[in-house]
């Protein structure tokens, strides 16, 4: 594997469209639940251990070569909010477009042909990690990190939060990120033998509720 490939894929400037999404932070700011660095950290930790763990597990399983169709259906079942399913497919499509230009290969072409409207982003991420020569742990780390880096950078814009504070939040979450990535890889290995039902399905009620409230708002800074 190439360690540099991991940096390219995890770089916030990788043109996969993630900057347009706040990961639920905009809805939480609007509801008065994120007001500064402390509540941002609490938000990120809750997102990481719920939808972040699910995303990391899906990505790790896809990187191990579990059938993307099975994983995409598992992602649908774990994403009851239609606004979040739509956002995940859109992000999956954008990621795949960028990755096919970066690491051209038949497996990515096949994924794009199979999911013309986009596969769930974590599933696409896992297949892209494979194409970039990365392993399941790398894919899990990427997905886990994205689950908190998006809300952190969005909150800098939404609250004019000091970027140093936002980065401090991410640094303090590093042990949790490693823990979640480890859990995800173990779950993905089990799923490779037993099927996608073995993957975690942790949910966060306020992320689902906030996503639908946010999608219905006429004026918003971020798409989700």
């Amino acid at each position: 594997m190439s360690r540099a490939a991991l940096l390219v894929l995890a770089d916030g400037r990788f043109p996969a469209g993630g900057h347009a999404h706040s990961g639920g932070a905009e809805a939480a700011v609007r509801a008065g639940r994120i007001t500064g660095a402390a509540s941002l950290e609490d938000f990120c930790r809750g997102r990481l251990t719920t939808s972040g763990l699910v995303a990391a597990s899906l990505a790790a399983a896809a990187a191990l070569g579990v059938d993307p169709g099975e994983l995409d259906a598992a992602a649908d079942a774990r994403t009851p909010a239609p606004a979040l399913r739509a956002a995940a497919r859109k992000l999956g499509r954008q990621l795949l477009r960028a990755a096919r230009a970066t690491w051209p290969c038949g497996e990515l072409d096949a994924l794009a042909a199979r999911f013309p409207t986009g596969a769930h982003q974590p599933v696409a991420l896992g297949v892209v990690a494979r194409a970039a020569g990365l392993d399941a742990r790398d894919a899990a780390h990427c997905a886990a990190y994205e689950s908190v880096s998006g809300p952190a950078s969005a909150t800098v814009r939404l609250l004019s939060l000091d970027p140093f504070d936002a980065t401090g939040v991410l640094a303090r979450l590093a042990p949790d990120l490693d823990h979640v990535a480890g859990q995800a890889v173990r779950a993905a290995r089990t799923a490779a033998h037993e099927g996608a039902d073995a993957l975690p399905a942790c949910s966060a009620p306020l992320l689902e509720i906030g996503a639908e409230l946010h999608a219905a708002r006429p004026v918003r800074l971020f798409a989700s």
């Binding site: 509540s39 609490d42 079942a77 399905a201």
Partner: peptide
């Protein structure tokens, strides 16, 4: 499978369960 959803909360649940996301 149309819905598969876990909810962990209270004592012993992973961090952030009572925070703004959950």
């Amino acid at each position: 499978t149309v819905l598969d959803q876990e909810l962990a909360c209270g004592a012993g649940a992973p961090g952030g369960w009572d925070g703004p996301a959950v």
